[in-house]
């Protein structure tokens, strides 16, 4: 099994992802520079967090035109697993691989803290080792995580169980107060209609081993590994 991690100029969570997949989950990892045009036979793609192209213009707006993104789109349309974390989620939105966009956080602040997210759908390649309704403690670190889309698209996301994670209280109540950034419907993570592309603002790679005091993020990355193993 080989996990490909795309490195854009300004990515800064790429090596955290590499560490978790390689050292914690024991998988082969290959780092893919954004100028590459082929994904070299990987089983899954991670678009990591960071500040690709300095977030100039809009988050993810320039990275989506990196040469590697054509290969990522092709990989996704063939059913390959793609996970975008934080800036990776923003890139997936700008690239049109996921619907909607991000607005500046409602508070205007860059928020870096632990959040609780509720697993709304455990029957996905990204959550198959979770329980439906399970609450995961995973940190966020972003200024633009206020998910927005038009009402018709939002209704579609809700109807098709595409909202995978919602910000919640520690006991799983999805309330406006539990939403750190103003996201519509407390959205913390969504998948595409086909189910193989997930974008999420919280950082599972930052809490995936016991030495860090929190292993909740491991469940998401382990789910991907389990999914590939089954296939």
């Amino acid at each position: 099994m080989k996990i490909g991690i795309v490195v854009f100029p300004g990515s800064n969570c790429d090596h955290d992802c590499e560490h978790v997949f390689k050292d914690v989950l024991g998988q082969d990892v290959t780092m893919i520079w954004h100028k590459e045009t082929s994904l070299a036979g990987v089983d899954a793609i991670i678009l990591p967090g960071g500040f690709s192209y300095g977030d100039y213009l809009r988050t993810g707006a320039i990275a989506r035109f990196s040469p590697v993104m054509n290969a990522v789109k092709e990989f996704a349309s063939g059913g390959g697993l793609v996970l975008g974390i934080c800036n990776g989620f923003q890139i997936l939105l700008e690239a049109g691989l996921l619907p909607g966009t991000m607005l500046r956080n409602k508070s205007l602040h860059f928020i870096c803290r632990e959040t609780c997210i509720k697993v709304e759908n455990a029957a996905t390649p990204f959550t198959n080792v979770c329980r439906s309704g399970q609450v995961l403690k995973i940190p966020i670190a972003h200024a633009d995580g206020n998910y927005y889309t038009d009402p018709v698209t939002l209704a579609g996301l809700q109807a098709n169980a595409q909202i995978i994670f919602r910000y919640s209280t520690a006991d799983g109540k999805v309330t406006p107060e539990a939403c750190p950034n103003g996201s519509l419907d407390n959205i913390a993570g969504i998948r595409n209609a086909e189910g193989n592309v997930l974008g999420m603002m919280p950082h599972p790679e930052r809490c995936a081993e016991s030495i860090l005091g929190n292993e909740d993020g491991r469940t998401i990355l382990l789910s991907m590994v389990e999914e590939i193993r089954k296939a």
């Binding site: 213009l57 707006a61 909607g100 966009t101 607005l103 927005y148 889309t149 038009d150």
Partner: peptide, 8 residues
């Protein structure tokens, strides 16, 4: 294509 995100 680039300068505006026409969703918002």
């Amino acid at each position: 294509k680039l300068l505006a995100n026409t969703i918002i």
